[in-house]
Amino acid sequence: DVEPGKFYKGVVTRIEKYGAFINLNEQVRGLLRPRDMISLRLENLNVGDEIIVQAIDVRPEKREIDFKYIP
């Protein structure tokens, strides 16, 4: 289970104008929005990159997770 405030290693699987989709595993995916990136820009991410993200909002009923990147 993903818990708000905890850090997780994930893989960038898709990049859109509104953010990057990060997979923690095959069943768990969330969104990293540009506003939640500190010292990292969306255009510097590539599909396949491994990054450490912090879960900031977890909505299991909608199967949605918002992430934050903190270097």
Score class of each variant (00 low, 15 high):
residue 36 D to Q: 06
residue 14 R to W: 08
residue 38 I to A: 11
residue 17 K to N: 13
residue 66 D to L: 11
residue 44 N to R: 08
residue 9 K to R: 13
residue 15 I to C: 03
residue 65 I to W: 07
residue 47 V to H: 04
residue 18 Y to V: 07
residue 52 I to A: 04
residue 12 V to P: 00
residue 20 A to N: 00
residue 44 N to Q: 15
residue 54 Q to R: 07
residue 51 I to A: 01
residue 41 R to Q: 13
residue 2 V to N: 02
residue 14 R to K: 12
residue 36 D to S: 06
residue 11 V to N: 05
residue 5 G to W: 06
residue 21 F to T: 08
residue 20 A to V: 10
residue 5 G to N: 09
residue 57 D to P: 03
residue 37 M to W: 02
residue 55 A to Y: 03
residue 52 I to S: 06
residue 14 R to L: 09
residue 14 R to E: 06
residue 45 L to P: 01
residue 12 V to S: 00
residue 57 D to C: 10
residue 70 I to N: 11
residue 3 E to A: 12
residue 7 F to C: 10
residue 29 R to E: 10
residue 65 I to S: 03
residue 62 K to D: 09
residue 56 I to Y: 14
residue 38 I to C: 11
residue 11 V to R: 13
residue 11 V to I: 14
residue 61 E to G: 13
residue 4 P to C: 10
residue 65 I to R: 02
residue 16 E to N: 09
residue 65 I to K: 02
residue 47 V to F: 05
residue 6 K to C: 10
residue 46 N to R: 15
residue 44 N to P: 02
residue 49 D to K: 04
residue 17 K to Y: 14
residue 71 P to R: 08
residue 17 K to L: 12
residue 56 I to W: 09
residue 2 V to S: 02
residue 5 G to L: 09
residue 58 V to A: 05
residue 14 R to C: 06
residue 29 R to M: 12
residue 38 I to S: 12
residue 25 N to D: 10
residue 70 I to H: 10
residue 55 A to K: 03
residue 52 I to L: 12
residue 21 F to A: 03
residue 18 Y to F: 13
residue 32 L to C: 02
residue 9 K to D: 04
residue 6 K to Y: 09
residue 25 N to L: 04
residue 7 F to S: 13
residue 30 G to I: 04
residue 4 P to A: 14
residue 21 F to K: 03
residue 60 P to C: 06
residue 69 Y to M: 05
residue 36 D to T: 02
residue 14 R to H: 10
residue 54 Q to L: 15
residue 12 V to M: 01
residue 60 P to K: 11
residue 52 I to R: 09
residue 35 R to P: 06
residue 58 V to N: 06
residue 58 V to I: 10
residue 51 I to S: 00
residue 68 K to Y: 08
residue 43 E to V: 10
residue 47 V to N: 04
residue 61 E to N: 13
residue 55 A to L: 06
residue 70 I to E: 11
residue 58 V to E: 03
residue 8 Y to K: 00
residue 4 P to R: 14
residue 66 D to Y: 14
residue 40 L to Q: 06
residue 43 E to I: 10
residue 48 G to T: 03
residue 65 I to E: 01
residue 17 K to D: 12
residue 36 D to Y: 08
residue 24 L to D: 00
residue 51 I to T: 01
residue 69 Y to T: 03
residue 22 I to L: 04
residue 64 E to F: 14
